Simulated scan of single mutants.
Amino acid sequence: MTEKPQDPQPQAQPQPDPKAAPELSGVDLARVALRAAKEQARERGAAAQQKKQARRGGLRSGARADGRDPLPLGAAISRLITERGWEAPAAVGGVMGRWPQLVGDDVALHCEPQKYDEEARVLTVSCDSTAWATQLRLLAPTLVARLNADLGHGTVKLIKVLGPAGPARSYGRLRAPGSKGPGDTYG
Rank of each mutant, 00 (worst) to 15 (best):
P70G: 10
A91L: 12
A120P: 01
G45S: 09
I81K: 05
P182K: 08
G152T: 00
V107N: 06
E118N: 11
L147N: 00
G97H: 07
L24S: 12
D17I: 08
K19N: 15
R84L: 09
T155G: 00
E87R: 15
L24A: 14
S78E: 14
L138R: 07
E118V: 10
A46H: 04
Y171C: 03
A108W: 04
V95Q: 04
W99P: 00
A88T: 10
R137H: 08
R44H: 05
A108R: 08
A33E: 13
V103Y: 00
R137P: 06
R173S: 12
E39K: 09
Q15N: 11
P10C: 03
P16R: 13
T2Y: 02
R44P: 02
Q53F: 03
A12N: 11
P177G: 00
A20C: 11
A41R: 09
P14T: 12
G26H: 03
A168D: 14
P164Q: 10
R84V: 02
L136D: 00
A65K: 09
A176V: 12
R98F: 11
Q101M: 11
D117G: 08
G104C: 04
Q135E: 14
C111Y: 00
A21P: 09
L147I: 01
T82F: 07
V144H: 02
S179P: 00
P10L: 13
V122E: 00
P18E: 06
A176G: 10
A65N: 09
Q101S: 10
C111T: 06
L59H: 08
P164F: 05
E112P: 02
A12T: 13
P72D: 11
A41V: 06
R84I: 02
Q13F: 11
Q49E: 12
T82K: 15
V122M: 01
A20Y: 07
A133D: 07
G45M: 06
P70L: 04
L80C: 05
R31C: 09
K51R: 14
G154W: 01
P100E: 05
G85V: 03
P89S: 05
L143W: 01
L158D: 04
D184R: 13
L24Q: 14
D184V: 08
G172A: 07
